[in-house]
Design a protein around this nucleic acid. Structure first.
Lengths: 203, 203
DNA sequence: AGTTAATGTGGACGGTGTCCACATAACTTC
DNA sequence: GAAGTTATGTGGACACCGTCCACATTAACT
């Protein structure tokens, strides 16, 4: 009672702190081991709280995981937005428009193999997705609209073309990441082939 | 000891029977609930054997899961092969070659939403993949070779083009299956757009 | 027939998600 | 500022899971 005197574990944290901490801990777990590594008890252990405390903030583990997935998806969107913003050139310029589309694909693939755990988690949302507007699809649509604006992409081909294009990039990320192409010797080249295929199809 | 006389649970099954049974049970579990549903104890329960019996046939759960994944992947390849074989027309004929490529994409996507659990499991192999030669990629390569043979695809564009194409189909399957596009209203149309994108790119 | 290897059993351990009853701190209201 | 209410954390428990150990029994081989 007198010596040691470690910080009283039972003291309550500031409001909403535990919830945010659990999500943050979950994100770190997801970063290392993907969605399956988001284990509720481990998250509470990191925050320094008893397992049941989590149930004051989430109905069950899936609800925590959903939150973590949203964070992961936002992280992907943020990194894409950053790389897009780095491309110089006025909006509507053919070259700049094409480079921005390229940046989208590159950023997407880079995130997938720099943060494989978060990437897998972003797409592992168990139920409803609460993704906001700055989403990978939204960014892609912007880029494609600009491509039309710049006269590179025929407006007649514009409608719905985001789906095949997203599919190529996402499929490449998945197949070369955790999929059957995971230990192909020429991963980078496969990625390049996919991006070139897109660029080639839009001219 | 005299009444009831249920079949002696402890009687040993014929050799290799338990192993095959566990894999079969695992496949059924995967069919219903995907890779996470392949739970070792449940599989042994289905076979009618004690949990530890599984460890005489598999080092751990992952080894059982790997086997189940292989079965799932073979199932996908088999269905693709069946649909390809259904396409009439001599090898090398432009029309037939194109229809066979179309059959590949269609069969792939059909399997993905007819058997979502097995599809997810096929690509969830935990470690090494023991897939044989009649694999989706192999079938796709055949079709592309035929397309060159038929004069539809420029031989110069042939090398490595299987990767973008596989990526489109796989990406579409994943995004519209368990991914963010899962509850888009026009799933079929998205799939059509992807397949059309491929066909359009090869002419 | 007797030995050996393969296979199944029983029991246990630590880990996980989740439920219940209880305690306590923080906010509200007078 | 005191009293009551609500939000939040605690302790303990349960069922389920993967996995390990020691033991039993069957099948195969000499």
């Amino acid at each position: 009672m007198s010596i040691g005197e470690e910080a009283p574990r039972s003291r309550r944290r500031p409001r909403g702190d535990v919830r945010a901490g659990l999500v943050a801990a979950g994100v770190e777990l997801a970063r290392t081991g993907g969605p399956d590594a988001v284990v509720l008890r481990e998250a509470t252990r990191i925050v320094g709280v008893v397992p049941n405390a989590a149930y004051r903030h989430f109905a069950d583990r899936d609800e925590l995981l959903a939150e973590v997935c949203t964070v992961a998806m936002n992280e992907l969107a943020d990194r894409m937005a950053t790389d897009i913003a780095r491309v110089r050139g006025r909006r509507g310029t053919p070259g700049a428009a094409q480079r921005r589309l390229g940046a989208i694909g590159t950023a997407y693939l880079r995130f997938a193999h720099e943060e494989p755990g978060l990437f897998a988690t972003a797409f592992a949302v168990p139920q409803q997705h609460g993704y906001n507007d700055r989403t990978p699809l939204g960014l892609l649509r912007d880029a494609l609209d600009e491509l039309v604006e710049a006269g590179v992409l025929d407006p007649q081909r514009r409608e719905g073309i985001e789906y095949p294009i997203w599919s190529i990039v996402h499929g490449t990320a998945v197949l070369t990441g955790q999929g059957p192409l995971r230990d192909a010797p020429d991963l980078r080249q496969i990625e390049s082939l996919s991006l070139a295929f897109i660029a080639n199809s839009l001219t």
